[in-house]
């Protein structure tokens, strides 16, 4: 494990903590896309099916369980917690996320490393993760104003993706035969989706003003 990968995992973890903190502290999920959160829960459940078949390290196993548990907890809060549920604005969160699920699964049926149950679900989770942020970005753009914690949540998620790219470059340079087309191409696509958000995030940071996305 290199420093970029570790930093990427930590910013990923941090993003989830920021989101949980926001929901817990404000008892509100305003500005948060339930659809994106549900997609992430599906992503983790589909990808970590290997929790039962492959052991990589204690670190890996621990993080997988944390990601599955935290993503389910967030979805639970938005769907079930009486106060949080009330703050969910479903009229803003209208992205047809099932289309992303269907398209990702279809793509995984054709593009995978091996035609096995685990590998197809692994590829599916990679494709779905690449586009899972879309409902969140659309919601932020629609509501215009982004509260600080939600902005930081998306910022850390984007940082995690950027650090994973550095991790792949490092591994490509240091490990013989490091080729992972599916993960790397999807990862670059995923990171590119944040470009617009990052642009406005840095502008607001530079001007010390509130983050606003143009309609």
């Amino acid at each position: 494990m290199n420093i970029f990968r570790l930093a990427g995992d930590m910013t990923h973890l941090l993003s989830i903590l920021v989101l949980l903190l926001k929901i817990y502290a404000t008892k509100s999920c305003s500005g948060v896309s339930r659809k994106t959160q549900e997609l992430y829960a599906i992503v983790f459940l589909a990808r970590y099916l290997d929790l039962f078949t492959d052991f990589i390290s204690v670190y890996n196993t621990f993080m997988k369980i944390v990601f599955i548990a935290s993503s389910l907890a967030i979805v639970w809060c938005i769907r079930v917690h009486p106060m949080v549920k009330r703050s969910y604005d479903k009229d803003l969160d209208t992205f047809r996320h099932y289309l992303l699920v269907a398209a990702s699964f279809l793509l995984a049926l054709f593009l995978h490393e091996k035609f096995t149950f685990l590998e197809i679900f692994w590829a599916f989770s990679i494709y779905l993760e690449a586009v899972a942020i879309l409902p969140q970005l659309v919601l932020l753009q629609r509501s215009g104003n982004v509260d600080n914690l939600t902005g930081q949540y998306v910022f850390f998620l984007g940082a995690y993706r950027g650090l994973y790219i550095l991790n792949w470059i490092y591994r490509y340079l240091t490990e013989p035969r490091f080729t992972r087309w599916i993960a790397c191409v999807s990862g670059v696509v995923q990171t590119a989706l944040y470009a617009d958000f990052f642009y406005y995030y840095f502008i607001s940071w530079k001007n010390n003003s509130k983050l606003k996305l143009p309609a």
Partner: peptide
């Protein structure tokens, strides 16, 4: 050779 561990990332 040793089979590489495929999915060692998260």
């Amino acid at each position: 050779g040793v089979e590489r561990k495929y999915h060692d990332e998260l």
